[in-house]
Write a protein that binds this DNA or RNA. Structure first.
Lengths: 257, 257
DNA sequence: GTCTATACCACGATAGAC
DNA sequence: GTCTATCGTGGTATAGAC
């Protein structure tokens, strides 16, 4: 403990700032949270954030790490449990479960906490004001690599490049789903009445993922199929007439004065 | 033309602002473009943006609409062409082609223009600082509804809710793919050496989408499959120990003064 | 080592002169 | 239509009290 100051809260300043920032981040997005709002809500001085975290961006990253680190740790732990206990019986379904279940579990009941966590995840995965997104990508590369080799093992027919493409697809889909504003409603609708466990929503997500991951390689059939569509006589084939402008490399920058 | 002022560029102020804003939006994101930067690059006064567009947000929407309107118009036109010429032979593959081809065509050659358009689309679909995203969602509801009924027609086995879920999935995947930073490299790798038409990258995307859209309904087999995973003896079943804090509803807000 | 007060500088928006 | 001046708010940096 730092020392019993005149402040009324026993929590130290750093934690109070984190809590306040997180609450403001969850409901209100990201741009809508100002340093002055955060520090006022936390009951600390404006400069405290810069002192303890260095900048607003660093504070955001600290907020994200505090929530996402345990989540990803649980993902890896679950994957390793599967690998240790199943051996060669491991399928890509197990890997998907390890990837999604820790996040999906949040939705399970518990009331307002689940709601807030869902909001948090949605914000974290979609808000990507080119800061949150970069942070997630950089901070969890090892976790993603861990899952990549697991998928590679359970899907040996896919080349490295193809698997990378499909995982990119799957992650994009997961992000988009979590990000969507009406995801919560969709989930509630599906789990209504039979929400005794998380297998339902998990099944929804994972079955689509499995179908995409196990899709047949576009060797002959599909290539000819889509290629044939493009060659239907009369098919409107013109490109979108290029971009309207977008070459203002030649601009003026000398007003009257 | 307004009048031959002392300015050197013949384009009117509105267009010059749009061009400059678009260029800054493409490389640099969204937060990094300031009114002062825009107006300086366009060679106009700071207040011109507010006069011609009303606000910075409105300017952004104008930039987006100028690029996305023709794209979506082409999507709808292609879909209607399919519906008119194929009748009951319409499949969900055709609908997907109408949905993706206009965007995919951008990647086709043309050099730096394609690159910029790709960047633009990526930004537009991912940046969603809760403004771009809302704009896209609100501005193109009719287009999405148009495609929804088309999918419903070609996938009669799916209920409305299930189809909505899967389309949400597909759109999320498309967004994630277009948004990803290394998408461009992936596309180049795949189209290298055989990039005579766009069918290759189109096939990549669409085949995964088709697999997900046509995935079997999770009736018995899949439910029991995933449910069984959750019931493996010894499976680590604890939820992630709930959220760390996140209840700072009780905060102080009375500094010394 | 912690915290406070305060002074920056850049941003978006607006009123009013020309 | 265009410009200048100015306002309120944003994040940041620092000097100095405890």
């Amino acid at each position: 403990m730092p020392q019993a100051s005149t402040r009324l809260s026993p929590a130290d300043t750093k934690t109070r700032i984190l809590d306040a920032a997180e609450a403001l981040f969850v409901n209100g997005g990201f741009e809508s949270m100002s340093m002055r709002q955060i520090t006022t809500a936390a009951g600390v001085n404006l400069a405290a954030v810069n002192y303890h975290f260095g900048s607003k961006d660093a504070l955001i990253q600290a907020v994200l790490a505090r929530q996402l680190d345990p989540l990803n740790a649980q993902r890896v732990a679950m994957l390793e449990w599967f690998e240790a206990n199943l051996g060669d019986d491991l399928t890509c379904e197990h890997v998907l479960v390890a990837m999604f279940l820790p996040a999906v579990r949040i939705f399970r009941g518990d009331g307002p906490t689940a709601e807030r966590y869902l909001h948090f995840l949605g914000r974290a995965y979609t808000d990507p004001s080119s800061l949150v997104r970069d942070f997630i990508n950089n901070h969890y590369v090892e976790t993603l690599g861990r899952f990549f080799v697991a998928f590679q093992r359970t899907l040996p027919d896919l080349s490295r490049g193809e698997l990378g493409f499909r995982l990119h697809f799957a992650m994009g889909a997961l992000s988009g789903i979590l990000a969507g504003g009406n995801t919560q409603r969709l989930i509630r609708d599906f789990t209504r009445g039979e929400g005794d466990d998380e297998s339902l929503i998990l099944t929804r997500l994972a079955s689509l993922m499995v179908a995409a991951l196990k899709a047949p390689l576009p060797d002959a059939e599909h290539n000819t199929l889509f290629g044939h569509i493009l060659k239907i006589p009369g098919f409107p084939g013109q490109p979108p007439s290029s971009m309207p402008a977008t070459q203002p490399d030649r601009v003026a920058s000398s007003p009257s004065s």
